[in-house]
């Protein structure tokens, strides 16, 4: 058994394309500049993992990382 699955956005890579918080508004939000941010500590459940993966696969900048 590993630890919790977590999602993070690399702020150096994110350009504010806005796909993550549109697709998965419960997992991602935006800051004052419109860049994506993860809500809370990014821990994913079996319910939210698939949606986080969908957001990841739609990020044009490849800025979303899911780590187990």
């Amino acid at each position: 058994m590993g630890g919790p699955v977590k999602v993070r956005i690399d702020p150096e890579i994110c350009q504010g394309q806005g796909r993550c918080f549109s697709i998965a508004p419960g997992i991602f939000d935006f800051d004052d500049l419109g860049n994506g941010v993860v809500i809370g500590d990014g821990t994913l459940t079996s319910d939210t993992l698939e949606l986080a993966r969908l957001a990841q696969s739609n990020c044009p900048e490849h800025a979303i990382f899911i780590e187990e």
């Binding site: 504010g16 806005g18 800051d31 500049l33 419109g34």
Partner: peptide, 8 residues
């Protein structure tokens, strides 16, 4: 200009 064009 980014804040003016942020989603809010």
């Amino acid at each position: 200009i980014l804040p003016a064009f942020a989603p809010g």
